[in-house]
């Protein structure tokens, strides 16, 4: 497989993860460590298939997925904000509930177990842009993705703007840094937390819908750890939207690389390790680089000082 295909697949893979990661990032920014991203994504994936099945329209399916996942996150929010339940404990129950509920509901809704495949007319359409063809490599990589993938690619920039340049972003940062100080500054903390979580829910729903509708089927547990990957990506990036974009794309690239390297004799154990090894490198590399730069700078200033001293 050539590099263009690898990168195209990487972008396709990163899309849903990116959407979910951006949601989790907002929650993290208001000091809620949302471990349940996986659960909300799964709910979104399942509901989008149900919605598409009943309405016969992909976009209504997406809407349905978003609504269900938002509804779920409101329940989560009520528990952790009003009832002061430990977010991680609540998250675990949400994940359990999501995996059990989606598995169970397959039977009453579709009358099947394990999986349900929609007709191929209900697949998420891909957007083909003629003008992109003119650009040699990047054009090919960025062409023929679904609308939600493009939205995912633009989203980090929007979020970076919102968080850093708007009043709402300031509120979010204030709540995240010091809640009490935010209260005394007259910020409606509860409202900010609810709104951030609701956006998180919407994005998880979109991520799930993209995942499920791009293959127009639901399979039990089909998110397969993507919620955790998203969480890892934003944690690696220190909750910075633009850095998260890079880490998500890195994860997508690693997955895609594994696919392209399979079938030519590499051990599948080694290949399975690759994304995590890459993540580890990505986590450690900036620190190492920073240390190196620091070291070099210190050496330089020391020699400068010494030479200065002798000159005098």
């Amino acid at each position: 497989m050539d590099i263009v295909t690898i990168l195209t697949v990487a972008v396709r893979h990163a899309g849903p993860v990116l959407l979910v990661a951006m949601g989790g990032l907002l929650a993290s920014r208001v000091n809620i460590f949302n471990l349940a991203l996986e659960g909300f994504m799964l709910i979104g994936a399942f509901s989008s298939i149900v919605g598409a099945f009943y309405t016969g329209n992909v976009w209504l399916g997406v809407l349905f997925g978003v609504l269900a996942s938002t509804l779920m996150i409101i329940i989560y929010a009520v528990f952790i904000i009003e009832l002061e339940v430990q977010p991680v404990v609540c998250a675990i129950s949400i994940i359990t509930l999501a995996s059990g509920l989606t598995r169970y509901l397959l039977n009453p809704v579709f009358g099947v177990s394990g999986r349900y495949v929609l007709s191929s007319e209900l697949a998420m359409p891909v957007v083909h842009m003629n003008w992109l063809e003119a650009i040699p490599v990047a054009g090919q990589i960025l062409n023929n993705h679904s609308l939600l993938v493009y939205f995912a690619l633009v989203l980090p920039f929007v979020l970076a703007f919102v968080i850093n340049k708007t009043k709402y972003g300031l509120d979010i940062r204030a709540v995240g840094m010091n809640e009490e100080a935010a209260v005394s500054a007259g910020i409606h903390v509860r409202k900010v937390k609810y709104s951030a979580l609701m956006i998180n829910g919407i994005l998880c729903g979109l991520g799930g819908a993209e995942l499920a509708l791009s293959v127009y089927m639901f399979n039990v547990g089909m998110t397969n750890g993507r919620g955790y990957t998203a969480l890892a990506a934003i944690t690696l990036a220190g909750c910075n939207p633009l850095l998260s974009l890079i880490t998500c794309l890195l994860f997508g690239f690693a997955e895609s690389l594994v696919v392209s390297l399979s079938g030519v004799g590499f051990s599948s154990y080694l290949l399975g390790m690759l994304p995590y090894a890459l993540a580890l490198v990505a986590a450690v590399a900036p620190q190492v680089a920073r240390r190196c730069i620091h070291f070099i700078k210190r050496k330089k200033s020391e020699t400068e000082m010494i030479s200065e001293y002798y000159r005098n």
Binding site: V9, N224, E255, V259
Partner: peptide
């Protein structure tokens, strides 16, 4: 090839 998952149609499709 091995896709390292029994529940992920997205990755199965890529393989």
């Amino acid at each position: 090839t091995y896709c390292n998952s029994f529940t992920d149609p997205t990755i199965g499709k890529e393989y």
